[in-house]
Amino acid sequence: MNSDTLVSVQNLSRYYGYFCAVNQISFEVKRGQILGFLGPNGAGKSTTMQMITGTLAPSTGQITVAGYDLLEQPLPAKLALGYLPEQPPIYREMLVIEYLRFCAHLHRIPAQAITSAVNRIIEQCGLTSVTQRLIGNLSKGYQQRVGIAQAIIHMPAVVILDEPTIGLDPIQIREIRELIQSLGTEHSVILSTHILQEVQAVCNHVQIINRGQLVLNDTISGLFAQMQTTHLQVGLRRPPPLRVLAQIPGVETVEGQDHDHFRIRHPTDNNPAEALVERAVAGNWGLYELIPEKRSLEQIFVDLTTEQQDINLSHSPKQDTLLSNSSEANFSEKVDIDQVAGLAADRLHQ
């Protein structure tokens, strides 16, 4: 373990009675990593996070935060932690500024640095307009921001956020994502979410947990590689016989879907699209459609979490098209929302 490993989790398990919520998880988080923690409901995301933050004791296993064993030296380990639980831990009867000062004290910020730390965090989390209001009277979005502010006020080495963007509007989500990304440059961030786009937008590492077990632990670029095409959707006006298509180098199998639509399967490292186009032009097949089918993150997620612990990448073609269509639709929708949010934000700034 080198000094840049900020969180190290080894063989972590947690039982609730006989129910095994987390089963033998091991992973490491290094400085500068933003780790997206994905999983369906009840997969053990929150339990794992609670164990890393010391609010829940593990049944077995070892957790090291910033070089300190969480069980043997809890205080220095917790000093390096910032944690936003699922529900922001806010005292409803306190003013925002009082609460933040309290949190600063609680996290051992030296007395002379508190005012500047509180002012900085108010600025960073966009709380300037509500500092003198009771937390209980704030909207959910602002309460969530106060919760985030609380987690990062002492600039901890490890920031753990359990669904941080829940209840926020699109502009706030953008701001919080930017904030998380800026945190990720110097600290490590562990972020649990079930919003897949958030992982794509913010994280550089992804872990998927299902039924208490890690089913995927990869960098986001590794994941994108997994998302590479394995299928081409081809539309031809004057299609040649199937076996001609199958002879193109790189093509593994060809299925005819209807009269002029074909679905070509190919290995990830050998895309026959170029060869296919050349042949189509030469043979005057009337190529009018060529769509690489992309496996979206959503699809990988569904594959990994529904097929029981069995990373089986092949599935029925029909389901595949269906899923990729729906995920594409989701994707474009997400872009729209972001653009709208961006426009709105720009307008606000003017």
Binding site: G54, T55, L81, Y83, P85, P89, Y91, C103, L106, R108
Partner: peptide
């Protein structure tokens, strides 16, 4: 009840 206990538990306080 208010789920504020994690704040104290995850803070460097025994």
């Amino acid at each position: 009840r208010n789920k504020t206990l994690p704040l104290l538990l995850s803070a460097p306080v025994s």
